[in-house]
Nucleic acid binder design. Structure first.
Length: 282
DNA sequence: AACGGAACCTGAAAGC
DNA sequence: TGCTTTCAGGTTCCGT
């Protein structure tokens, strides 16, 4: 269940595991994760190629492959091929060995020497999009600036928000405005900024936008700092303690002022907020 | 055109 | 204990 921080962690892991390695074998299960293409096409794209590196934009990953000839065939003259990947709600890339048996809900595996990288995704909301000619898919090009990689330009951000009709929370979930925020990070950012989730995006003043920018960068940095260790652990997973300030804490006291946290639904997503710290009116 | 709601899936947790 | 309901961090499609 990944948002920007978890996907960033996944990108770093994948890069560390695979960069410079040659994929001897790729096995992709024919599921709806691969759309607009085929599992066989993804396997063909990967097999025999060397991984040049792994990049992230928003919640999307791009596994860059070295171009040029692979085997005896002539190389293409276009941009280097790549595999684009989205983790959906429950996707994970895990490091295993070729000796390990298939994991539950394993949807793909990339073998390089003794290393075997597995993609596991119970709910099948993830995506694998091959780009053999190096042309990025629309899902990637449509993304707005990445808060980590590109930073947030306050003036541009304020202008964009001013153009939006709906609640600020809904705007934050729009990947064309900023790429990478999901329900948790948007909820946390608004609480940090002291902004009511239902506030019309266009109603925010300059100082409020500045607070929101600080809230976004702050919550992203804090969540990312929690990701460590050899395997991705989506913060707040089964059994683990909830590390967030307000997300998933409806009814509990606000960590800042003690007032009971409220819950509302916006755009079909649960949203927790503090009525005192995040007043409806500016 | 915009917007809410349902759909796509499975599993964990809460409710009874 | 065990069955049922609810909910989940993402996106996309459909109907109004």
């Amino acid at each position: 269940m990944p948002e920007l921080p978890e996907v960033e962690f996944a990108a770093r892991q994948l890069g560390a595991w695979l960069s410079g390695k040659r994929i001897d074998r790729a096995a992709i299960a024919p599921t709806r994760i691969v759309r607009g293409s085929s599992a066989a096409a993804v396997e063909a794209l990967l097999t025999g190629r060397v991984v040049a590196g792994v990049e992230r934009r928003g919640k999307w990953l791009r596994i860059d492959l070295e171009g040029g000839p692979k085997g005896p065939r002539r190389g293409s003259t276009g941009a280097a091929p790549a595999l684009y990947a989205h983790l959906g709600m429950t996707g994970k890339w895990l490091r295993r060995s070729t000796k390990d048996v298939a994991l539950q809900h394993e949807r793909a595996r990339l073998d390089a020497g003794a290393l075997s990288v597995r993609y596991v995704d119970p709910r099948l909301f993830g995506r694998l999009v091959p780009a053999p000619a190096g042309v990025p898919p629309e899902e990637w090009t449509a993304l707005g600036p990445d808060p980590l990689g590109d930073g947030i330009d306050p003036a541009r951000f304020e202008a964009e928000l001013g153009r939006r009709k709906g609640p600020v929370k809904v705007a934050l979930l729009d990947q064309t405005l900023l790429a990478g925020l999901g329900n948790i990070q948007a909820t946390e950012a608004l609480w940090r900024a002291g902004l009511h989730p239902a506030r019309p995006a266009a109603s925010l003043g300059g100082d409020e936008v500045a607070r929101l920018v600080a809230g976004i960068t702050g919550t992203l940095a804090d969540t990312l700092a929690r990701e460590a260790g050899p395997e991705i652990t989506y913060v707040e997973e089964a059994g683990a303690a909830n590390p967030f300030s307000v997300y998933g804490r409806g009814g509990q006291p606000c960590p800042r002022c003690g007032a009971p946290l409220l819950r509302m639904v916006l755009a079909g997503r649960g949203t927790v907020y503090c009525a005192r710290c995040q007043p409806k009116k500016a």
